[in-house]
């Protein structure tokens, strides 16, 4: 067992950016590290070369991830990662494009790019790290903050409704949609690998903990307590299908929620190019 753990961390170290002075900006106990390691293991398992992977992000705690990883890194502007990623993927369909985004980044300021990237079914794997709050700016409410929850901008409880990112992605046209939590690291790794191997827009919601702000403001305890609550509240999709709406109240349904095959955007455009050039 000890050897296996050592080997695992060896894999992680291979993918960290050389010369980068750690620590990261992430708080001790932040779920982002678990997600980063799941991504590394998924990429390693698929055998992608580091050169062919482009990791694109916007602004926020989670969006710092590309800076720590030894891939091609594109750390862009707030909410716009999918716009930049669309340019990268469409210009160079041979590259594997991963977008790291947060609930504020993808669902608020970047909502328009998010739904349209889903609609195009462009071959990008998007991992939305959902901690239900703006961490980097110090704990403001996001479109994923539940009704009634406290944040520095919802000091009397959130009066708004929150988005269900997976339902939004599916409705907008994503062809691979899954949800998992930072407690379920092995499932997360498999889901990310599945998304990367899928041809089309893959969307993975990774429920994560921000004990520093969300936890503190909502009395959810420390990192360990929050991650434990993910374990306790998670329900596998198969089981959830047999449960009533009341029984599912407050639960997190995890698993690959939706998967279908549709023509991918870059492939479709290539067919246009081929038909025009073939006609010459």
């Amino acid at each position: 067992m000890a050897t296996a753990v050592k080997q695992k961390s060896d894999v992680i170290l291979q993918y960290l950016r050389p010369h980068k002075k750690m620590p990261s900006v992430w708080c001790a106990g932040c779920g982002n590290g678990i997600i980063m390691s799941a991504i590394i293991r998924a990429v390693d398992k698929l055998g992608y070369s580091k050169d062919e992977v482009v990791m694109v992000s916007g602004i926020g705690c989670s969006s710092r991830m590309p800076i720590y990883l030894d891939f091609n890194a594109l750390h862009t502007t707030h909410g716009r990662a999918l716009g930049f990623a669309t340019g990268v993927k469409f210009a160079r369909p041979d590259l594997k494009v991963i977008v790291i985004t947060g609930d504020g980044d993808a669902l608020a300021i970047g909502g328009n790019h998010f739904i349209h990237a889903c609609r195009r079914n462009i071959d990008i794997t998007t991992i939305l790290i959902n901690n239900a709050i703006y961490g980097m700016t110090g704990g403001q409410g996001s479109p994923a903050t539940p009704s009634g929850a406290f944040s520095t901008t919802t000091p009397y409880g959130n009066v708004e409704k929150h988005f269900e990112p997976c339902e939004l992605a599916r409705a907008a046209g994503a062809t691979y949609v899954g949800r998992t939590t930072v407690y379920h690291a092995t499932q997360m790794e498999k889901m990310i690998a599945g998304g990367l191997a899928h041809s089309g827009f893959a969307f993975i919601e990774a429920i994560s903990n921000c004990q520093t702000y969300f936890g503190r403001l909502n009395r959810k305890g420390d990192a360990v307590a929050m991650i434990k609550s993910f374990k306790e509240n998670a329900v596998m999709l198969g089981k959830a299908k047999k449960m009533s709406e009341e029984e599912l109240e407050g639960k997190i349904v995890i698993g690959t929620l939706y998967r279908t095959e549709k023509t991918e955007f870059c492939d479709e455009y290539q067919r246009v190019i081929d038909s025009l050039q073939g006609g010459k």
Binding site: V54, R80, G83, F84, T86, G87, A91
Partner: peptide, 20 residues
């Protein structure tokens, strides 16, 4: 590509340029 707005348009242009 016709993007969803001008913000996405220039983002895609910059991404494509960096890609090559």
């Amino acid at each position: 590509i016709q993007m969803e707005d001008e913000i996405g348009s220039i983002a895609a242009v910059v991404g494509a340029s960096i890609a090559g």
